[in-house]
Write a protein that binds this DNA or RNA. Sequence first.
DNA 1: CGAACTGTTGAGAGGCTTCAAGCCTAGTGG
DNA 2: CCACTAGGCTTGAAGCCTCTCAACAGTTCG
Lengths: 233, 233
Amino acid sequence: MKNVIRFPTETETDLSCFQLFKTLTDQELIRLNLDMTSRIYERKDIVYHEGSRLTGFYCITKGILKLYKTGTEGKEQIFRFAQSGDIIGYRSLVCRELADATAKVIKEAALCHIPYNTFLILEQNNWQFSQYMLQIACQELYEANNYLTSISQKYVKENLAEVLLLLKQKFDPDNTNTLQIPLSREELANATGTVKEHVTRLLGEFSRQKIIEVKGCEIKLLDLPTLKRIAKH
Amino acid sequence: MKNVIRFPTETETDLSCFQLFKTLTDQELIRLNLDMTSRIYERKDIVYHEGSRLTGFYCITKGILKLYKTGTEGKEQIFRFAQSGDIIGYRSLVCRELADATAKVIKEAALCHIPYNTFLILEQNNWQFSQYMLQIACQELYEANNYLTSISQKYVKENLAEVLLLLKQKFDPDNTNTLQIPLSREELANATGTVKEHVTRLLGEFSRQKIIEVKGCEIKLLDLPTLKRIAKH
DNA sequence: CGAACTGTTGAGAGGCTTCAAGCCTAGTGG
DNA sequence: CCACTAGGCTTGAAGCCTCTCAACAGTTCG
């Protein structure tokens, strides 16, 4: 059944493994744990909508989310997959703007909500926290500009190969070459900048060439060198 | 003649108008002015190359630059135009990585170079400096994701209209509707995600429809509402 | 079992790129 | 002052890539 609410376990509320909080004093950590609230989100749950006002940012302690913007004609553009260890929602907080993206759960997730005030206090009292925050933003910026260049200049086939490689890098910690992230064809399309029909065709092509193996949502990468060559990496 | 080196004037080394430095103490400001070096760059000069190691970041006190990445087949993807009041080069500094883009002058510019050490000291001692730095990064991130969504989902015609509107917003302070930035067809293409021939055709189409007026590099926007409609804004 | 959703496949249209040729313009040197 | 050259701009034609539409197959779930 769906309506059994499960409360976060202790490991799901443990923020100590976040690099971002590594330099906090004991006192700051206690304060953080007091202010923070945590919750479990099911697949397809929406953490926040584009246009909503956030009251804090979120630390992901478990699961996978997608972040997307809604473009023309309501088509979603996925620009980031976030997982355990990542933080989301900080951008609109920093700029004091409404959320510019929607965060939706792909794989059951546990999130910790850090209120704006706590964020502000940390920012003012712990320069290393600020420094790391800036690093996170700059890293994302780097990836965004890379992504832009790829999507803008490459063929869809090349981009799909690139997205698969990116997904492997992020969601195959055990190096099984099987992507540990359940994505529909449409989601893959929304991350690649195309339509689901085209993804179907290209995945079929890759399969026939024994570059990948597809079983429903599950994708296994068989021939990484060829995939990299296609992606022009 | 070209080889007359002009040294920066006083207003071209004046950082006090930068929001980023508004909260500096007198002492910090003095230090900043001692550590900083300034230079004039001519059109087509390159401030830094993709892959180079930066020793600091740059404040633009005059002129216009383009920031681009070199994609497959050497095609450049312009992802940002920067002008007086903007800072560039901070991303690779923050992440301690090599520059991920090239900064090239479009309109004669004056830049102030702030060494990494000075940046670090400010970051550690002035939380408002850090906060504003984070805001700048987040604002760029916002624009990058918007840009991605547009380029990925819209027709080239729509994107070109959007780029023209963005250029008006940035480079038409006096509201003359004439873009104060000299861009070649190829540069417009590299910002829009297409090729120069297509830009030519589309500008011609816009001209014939009296939406814009083109005279060489000079573009005047005549019908903003229609342009906005085309850009789907 | 039907409904709703997702995935697959085919055909056709249209946007966009590529290639090639010719034009225009600005800057150069005689 | 004028011819010349290089580089950017324009234009046309051909063909590829990608999208759209539509029909159908599979899957999941109540």
